[in-house]
Simulated assay, not measured.
Amino acid sequence: MRIVLATGNKGKLREFKHMCQDEVVAFSDLLGEFDIVEDGDTFASNALIKARTIYEKLGEEYLVISDDSGISLPILDGAPGIYSARYAGVGVTDKDNLYKLIETMKEKGVRATPAYYTAAIAIVSKYGEYVVHGWMHGDVIDEARGNKGFGYDPMFIPAGFDKTLGELDDDVKKKISHRAQALKLAQPIIQMLKGK
């Protein structure tokens, strides 16, 4: 059973390939590029929408994994949340979203505030559907530091650290990230399904 990742996000694909020992193929390598409308109201529902869409196009020989993730700030009532990838608008870059959140913090007069990342990983195969979650807590700051990672990483300082994810080595991030936490829960499910 081939494992396909239902994302067009190159940063997520790189992280999944790095974290998974199995060969992971991007759906676009098999089906070409196309957009999937994510109109769910939770990370889990959006992850399932993506995984189901790709699974329906590929069929039973595939196990499809998708991730929906984002950053939430309690001071902003949980925003950007499920809108993290389009916080600054549709068709924007990661940097646009990052600087929009920095600008929002500055407008509120906040230099640092608690925040957390959520990752929901959906797994869809002929044997059923599964969703697991992972979280990473810390603080966001009103500036970008470092050029590693992607998305909001340059402004997020994980709990217990004094550097942003943009400054930390990939090996550290791989151990503590929300996606890594969710993947730890997803891996036994993936192995079970592959063994059937």
Rank of each mutant, 00 (worst) to 15 (best):
M1N: 06
N9R: 04
K10H: 08
K10M: 10
L13E: 07
L13H: 01
E15N: 09
E15S: 08
K17D: 09
H18P: 00
H18W: 05
M19V: 06
Q21N: 14
Q21T: 12
V24C: 09
V25R: 09
F27P: 03
F27C: 08
S28P: 05
L31I: 12
L31E: 03
G32H: 08
G32R: 08
D35M: 13
V37T: 10
V37E: 11
E38W: 03
T42A: 00
T42M: 00
S45I: 00
N46K: 00
N46Y: 00
L48K: 02
R52W: 05
R52H: 14
T53M: 06
I54F: 04
K57N: 11
G59M: 12
G59F: 15
G59T: 14
E60L: 09
E61V: 05
E61R: 12
L63E: 02
S66F: 13
D67Q: 07
D68E: 10
S69Y: 05
S69F: 06
L73S: 05
L73N: 03
I75D: 03
I75R: 02
L76S: 11
A79S: 13
A79P: 04
G81C: 04
I82G: 00
R86V: 13
Y87D: 02
G89K: 10
G89I: 13
T93C: 10
T93M: 10
D94W: 07
L98T: 07
K100E: 12
L101H: 01
L101K: 01
L101T: 05
T104P: 04
M105C: 09
M105P: 04
E107W: 08
K108W: 10
V110D: 08
R111D: 14
Y116Q: 02
Y117G: 03
T118N: 00
I121K: 02
A122L: 11
V124S: 07
S125P: 10
K126S: 14
K126I: 07
E129S: 12
Y130I: 11
V131H: 00
V132A: 03
H133T: 15
G134K: 01
W135D: 03
V140W: 01
V140H: 01
I141E: 03
E143S: 13
E143I: 13
R145G: 09
R145S: 09
R145Y: 11
G146C: 14
N147G: 15
K148Y: 12
G151C: 11
D153N: 10
F156S: 02
I157K: 03
A159I: 08
K163R: 14
K163D: 07
T164D: 07
L165P: 05
E167K: 02
E167W: 04
L168N: 01
D169P: 13
D169R: 09
D171N: 12
V172M: 06
K173I: 15
K175E: 15
I176V: 15
A180I: 06
Q181Y: 05
L185Q: 14
A186I: 08
A186D: 04
Q187E: 13
Q187N: 08
I189S: 07
I189D: 05
I190Q: 05
L193H: 13
L193Y: 10
G195T: 10
K196S: 12
